[in-house]
Design a protein around this nucleic acid. Structure first.
Length: 478
RNA sequence: UGAGGCGUGGUGCAGCUUGGUAGCACGCUUGGUUCGGGACCAAGAGGUCAUGGGUUCAAAUCCCAUCGCUUCAACCA
């Protein structure tokens, strides 16, 4: 330490917002672009998105979902057909009014979501019940003209996947929307090491035009909730509005049941927030594009040092572990700090002292633990450590979540949880719109989720005095 | 949309009050010495000071306008 740090970041505890921005920039995940609200996804950031894509593509294909790509522009008249939907999205649409230097006869909207385009296509390709179900997904970007933007968490343009499916029955459609939600939840558990609260959205928070919206909600370190993914059962209203019809088994005209679902690069925001620390990014092992970095110490002292590093690298690679070897002439200290900033889960050091003992040093980014490993059997040790770290990170996040869910029995108790940033306030609710409004005005909190795991603890809503319908989680949200 | 902060080599900043034609640190390049927690020496490259207009013999500096970025509050993945 001599005050010549290449980079330095704000403390996470002192100022979460500044810390977050610092990490995004300095871990080289993104950069700001010229246009307001737009960002450059840099290789280390995009690689995280690619890991998410790999994970989900595999799962989706297992469900018979096929990838497609539809245009990025939507004619205004097409968007306007489903009135609830357009009402929800119109305020944040970017609109193209000119083509070349000619004013367009009809304005085009840059897609904020693609239900309308899918509908327009579905009406052409669906004829018979034999064509169902139709399960499509597209990886693309969407544009929403946000006023206030933050890297990954809220941008004018973001990357996502949007799935669109048609089914014969409501039961099948809802089932499928829930299957996808479960898949998102498992991705949190197995890839991102982020625990989610799974459930339904209350009516006021549903997707524009949806009959039901299912959600995965995460809790950030400042105790604000972050909606990380949603799946929607849209009923037949889109089918009817866009005239998607087919002949059923009885040779009658029928409208298919529609689902749509998506996760976005916002997940990267969650990943950074949940796991990061004052040294920078901390990546869970299975999403980390680089899982292990090998740093030779004094490679000039003995040729065997570098040879062993190279051997180690290929041994690990043979077992599918993602490894880099940094033999640049930066000093070890610089490399340590750099790879900590970038969140790489494991660091291997190998120098003269290790060579003597036929070992190498393994350091865990997650908790700083340092272990000496024999050069005779490196692979199992590394695999074990990756697994250990993943478990450790998930459990830590889970513990944080569980410690920040508070059962409340009155308006004031709810307010206390919210205003003191204690997390989710769990209340027995009658789902009354006026009650929601009152809470929102008083505490700036909204009902985030009606969890699937209900376990009611009272029969009445303590605020309205009416019969309680659901356990509802309130929180402030991003 | 409301309130603040900021625009000067790649990055972070100083210079502006009191106008005289741009400087520091880090980074980058080359060579050498180094290497177990952000190394050092030497020599280099790199900026029409966000944009437009105005005042002036002279503007990074003063005046007007515009644009952008960013932070905090209200809405959406």
């Amino acid at each position: 330490m001599n005050g010549k740090k290449v980079t330095s970041i704000t403390s996470k505890h002192d100022n979460l917002t500044q810390w977050y921005t610092d990490v995004c920039l300095k871990a080289e995940l993104m950069d700001y672009a010229q246009a307001k609200g737009f960002i450059v996804y840099r290789p280390d950031g995009y690689a995280l998105w690619e890991e998410i894509q790999n994970y989900l593509n595999k799962k989706f294909k297992g469900y018979g979902v096929r990838n497609v790509y539809l245009p990025s522009l939507i004619p205004m008249s097409l968007l306007n057909k489903e009135k609830e939907h357009v009402k929800g999205f119109a305020p944040e649409c970017a609109v193209v009014t000119k083509g070349g230097n000619k004013t367009l006869a009809e304005e085009m909207v840059v897609r904020p979501t693609s239900e309308t385009l899918f509908c327009d296509h579905f009406k052409d390709i669906l004829h018979s019940y034999n064509d169902l179900p139709i399960k499509y997904n597209q990886w693309c970007s969407v544009v929403r003209w946000e006023k206030t933007t933050r890297p990954f968490l809220r941008g004018a343009e973001f990357l996502w996947q949007e799935g669109h499916t048609l089914h014969e029955s409501e039961v099948e459609a809802r089932e499928f929307a829930l299957t996808i939600l479960r898949t998102y939840n498992e991705m949190g558990r197995d890839l991102l090491a982020i625990p989610f609260v799974c459930g339904r959205k209350p009516a006021s928070e549903r997707f524009a035009g949806a009959k039901d919206t299912y959600t995965i909600e995460a809790l950030m370190p400042d105790c604000q909730a972050l909606q990380c993914g949603t799946t929607h059962y849209l009923g037949t209203s889109f089918s009817e509005a866009y005239n998607i019809r087919y002949s059923n088994k009885e040779n009658k005209i029928a409208y298919p049941h529609y689902t749509s679902w998506g996760v976005s690069t916002r997940l990267l925001g969650a990943l950074i927030m949940v796991h990061g620390d004052d040294e920078g990014l901390v990546l869970p092992p299975y999403i980390a594009p680089i899982q292990v970095t090998i740093i030779p110490i004094r490679p000039d002292a003995d040729k065997a040092i570098l040879d062993n590093c190279k051997k180690l690298k290929s041994q690990l690679e043979e077992h599918g572990i993602r490894v880099t070897l940094d033999n640049s002439n930066k000093t070890p200290g610089w490399k340590f700090a750099q790879y900590e900033m970038k969140g790489i889960p494991l660091r291997i050091e190998l120098g003269p002292k290790d060579l003597e003992k036929k070992q190498f040093m393994l350091t865990r980014r997650f908790d700083g633990a340092k272990i000496a490993i024999s050069l005779d059997a490196p692979v199992d040790a590394v695999i074990d450590q990756l697994q250990e770290i993943h478990k450790g990170m998930y459990n830590k996040a889970l513990q944080f979540l569980n410690e920040h869910i508070h059962e409340v029995h009155s308006f004031d108790e709810l307010g206390e949880v919210i205003t003191k940033s204690q997390g989710f306030a769990k209340i027995m609710s009658s789902n009354d719109p006026e009650e929601e409004q009152k809470i929102k005005e008083a505490f700036n909190a909204t009902p985030r989720v009606i969890p699937f795991d209900q376990s009611p603890f009272s029969d009445t809503d303590p605020i309205t005095g009416k019969k309680a319908e659901d356990v509802v989680f309130y929180a402030r949200a991003y």
